[in-house]
Amino acid sequence: MSADTKVAIVTGASSGIGKASAVALAKAGWAVVLFARRADALKATRAQCPKPEQILLVIGDITREEDIKRLFESTLQRFGRLDVLFNNAGSFNKAAPLDEIPLVSFQSVIDTNLTGTFLCTKEAMRIFKSQKPQGGRIINNGSIAAYMPRLHTAAYAAAKGGVLGLTRATALDGRAFNITCTQVDIGNALTEMAAANQGGGGALQADGSVKPEGTFDVKHVADTIVHIAGLPLDVTVLTFTILATQMPFVGRG
Rank of each mutant, 00 (worst) to 15 (best):
K6V: 00
V7W: 00
I9H: 06
G12T: 08
S14W: 06
G16S: 02
G18F: 06
W30K: 13
V32N: 08
V32H: 01
L34M: 14
F35G: 10
R37Q: 05
R38N: 11
A39S: 13
A47N: 11
Q48M: 12
Q54L: 00
I55N: 08
L56D: 04
I59G: 06
I59L: 12
T63K: 15
E65Q: 06
I68K: 06
R70S: 13
L71Q: 01
T75W: 03
Q77D: 09
R78N: 04
L82N: 11
G90L: 09
N93K: 01
N93S: 10
L98I: 09
L103K: 15
V104E: 15
S108D: 11
F118V: 05
C120R: 01
T121W: 06
T121I: 04
T121N: 01
M125W: 09
K129A: 15
P133Q: 06
Q134T: 13
G135Q: 02
I138N: 04
I138G: 04
I139E: 10
M148Q: 12
M148Y: 13
P149N: 03
A157K: 11
G162W: 07
T167H: 04
T170A: 13
L172E: 03
D173S: 11
D173Q: 12
G174A: 04
A176C: 02
F177G: 01
I179R: 03
T180C: 15
T182K: 07
D185W: 07
I186F: 11
I186R: 00
A189T: 06
T191E: 03
A195T: 14
A196C: 02
N197A: 15
Q198V: 03
G200V: 09
A206T: 01
V210M: 01
V210T: 13
K211C: 11
E213S: 14
G214Y: 05
G214N: 12
G214T: 06
T215L: 02
F216Y: 13
D217R: 10
K219V: 12
H220C: 01
G230M: 00
D234Y: 14
D234F: 15
I242P: 06
L243D: 07
Q246P: 07
V250R: 14
V250E: 14
